[in-house]
Simulated scan of single mutants.
Amino acid sequence: MWEMTTPWWEIVLRAAGVYLFLLFLIRLSGRRTIGQFTPFDLLVVMLLSEAVSNALTGGDQSVTAGLIAAFTLIAINAIIARLTARFTRLQVMMEGEPVLVGKDGRILHKVLLQQHVPPADVEQALREADCELKDMRCAFLEADGSISILRKDPEGH
């Protein structure tokens, strides 16, 4: 149960490699937050965890190997969080920047398509901001997947 068949340092390297690779893939996949996951997104996340489980420990089924892999993942996540809080360029690289998805009462459909965001999400953000499309100055897809709406000022500027 506790005896490992794989060296501890190999598990650390495997976990770090899997973490960084999955982080890269998730950055490529778009900007949905957990609350915006569709059932298909959730299924992909669940299957990803199953797909990489052996890659984390090299097939070592011991509790110790699992704990080392878990510790490594948490440690890497904490280190990346601290580094992105300190270095803006790293934060932009890891988390992305806001993207303009609407301007002057128009939804930029090509940009939404590139970002894998349905127009209905912008329409929902407009309703939540109590803003009609014609009154929208800008709409931004934020790095966390939320959509921010800026209204035109009362004079229409």
Rank of each mutant, 00 (worst) to 15 (best):
M1Y: 13
M4I: 07
T5Q: 12
T5S: 14
W9T: 03
W9R: 00
I11H: 04
L13E: 06
A15T: 15
G17S: 07
V18M: 10
Y19R: 15
L20R: 08
L23Q: 14
F24K: 07
F24D: 00
I26K: 05
G30V: 13
R31M: 06
R31P: 12
R31T: 11
R31L: 12
R32Y: 13
R32W: 09
R32H: 14
Q36Y: 05
Q36N: 12
T38W: 12
P39Y: 11
P39F: 13
F40Q: 14
D41P: 04
D41R: 13
D41G: 11
L42G: 13
L43M: 15
L43T: 14
V44Y: 05
V45Y: 10
V45G: 05
L48S: 11
L48P: 00
L48F: 13
S49I: 10
S49D: 09
V52L: 06
N54I: 14
A55Y: 06
G58D: 00
G59S: 07
G59I: 14
D60Q: 09
D60Y: 04
D60T: 04
D60A: 12
S62Y: 11
V63P: 03
T64I: 11
T64G: 10
A65D: 01
G66S: 11
L67A: 15
L67C: 11
A70L: 04
L73A: 12
I74E: 05
I74L: 12
I74R: 07
I76E: 09
N77P: 10
A78N: 05
R82A: 11
T84I: 14
A85C: 12
R86A: 05
R86H: 11
R86V: 01
R86G: 00
T88N: 02
L90R: 03
M94V: 15
G96C: 08
E97P: 00
E97H: 10
P98S: 06
L100M: 10
K103S: 03
K103M: 05
D104F: 00
R106Y: 00
L108W: 05
K110W: 05
K110T: 07
V111T: 15
L113F: 05
Q115P: 15
Q115C: 14
P119A: 12
P119Q: 11
A120V: 14
R127W: 09
E128C: 03
E128Y: 01
A129H: 04
C131G: 07
C131M: 12
E132C: 03
E132A: 09
E132Y: 06
K134P: 07
D135V: 01
R137C: 00
C138Q: 13
C138H: 11
F140Q: 06
L141E: 10
A143N: 02
D144M: 01
G145Q: 02
S146G: 04
I147L: 00
S148E: 00
I149K: 00
I149F: 01
D153G: 08
D153P: 03
D153M: 03
E155N: 07
E155F: 07
G156L: 01
